[in-house]
């Protein structure tokens, strides 16, 4: 474990806490894409299959349980909670995310570390995570104004993978045989997708103005 990876995991956890806070405090999920939340639940379920087979560390196990539980809780909340589900922007959240699932799964069948179910699902979860934010970014562009908590949620979600890139560089330099091309390349693509959001987020922060994404 290195400081970059710990910072990445804590930033990721923070993004989930901010999202839970927004939904719980405002009893509303307006501006949040249910499709992105479903994709994240799928990412964690596909990636953490080894939760019960490979024990890495207490920290690793606890974080996996927290990520799976929180992502499922958010999907449950947005689908079934009587009060929250009314504020879901159903007509704005129209990204065809099934294409993302199909495309990344086919890619995982072709590009993986080993042609075993667990490795294919792991690669699938890595590729899917890279594109999972797209429905959310599209929703933000459509809904015009972005409330602070939602903006912070997306910002932390993008920042966490940027910390992971620093972690991979650090591990590549310090560990003799560290290579994790699938996660590295996918992580760079993922962080790149946030680039324009980061740009507008920084502009709004500098001008102390409301975050607006161009339609």
């Amino acid at each position: 474990m290195n400081i970059f990876r710990l910072a990445g995991d804590m930033t990721h956890l923070l993004s989930i806490i901010v999202l839970l806070l927004k939904i719980y405090a405002t009893k509303s999920c307006s501006g949040i894409s249910l499709k992105t939340q479903e994709l994240y639940a799928l990412v964690f379920l596909a990636r953490y299959l080894d939760l019960f087979t490979d024990f890495i560390s207490v920290y690793n196990t606890i974080m996996k349980v927290v990520f799976i539980a929180s992502s499922l809780a958010i999907v449950w909340c947005m689908r079934l909670h009587p009060l929250v589900k009314r504020s879901y922007d159903k007509e704005l959240d129209t990204f065809r995310h099934y294409f993302l699932i199909g495309g990344t799964f086919v890619l995982a069948l072709v590009l993986n570390e080993k042609f075993t179910l667990q490795e294919i699902l792991w690669a699938f979860s890595i590729y899917l995570e890279a594109v999972a934010i797209l429905p959310q970014l599209v929703l933000l562009q459509r809904s015009g104004n972005v409330d602070n908590l939602t903006g912070q949620y997306v910002f932390f979600l993008g920042a966490y993978r940027a910390f992971y890139i620093l972690n991979w560089i650090y591990r590549y330099l310090t560990e003799p045989r560290f290579t994790r091309w699938i996660a590295c390349v996918s992580g760079i693509v993922q962080t790149g997708i946030y680039a324009d959001f980061f740009y507008y987020y920084f502009i709004s922060w500098k001008n102390n103005s409301k975050l607006k994404l161009p339609a």
């Binding site: 890495i56 570390e113 490795e119």
Partner: peptide, 10 residues
């Protein structure tokens, strides 16, 4: 060899 790298990252 060929043992898939243990996934120690989240």
């Amino acid at each position: 060899e060929g043992q898939s790298v243990v996934k120690d990252e989240l």
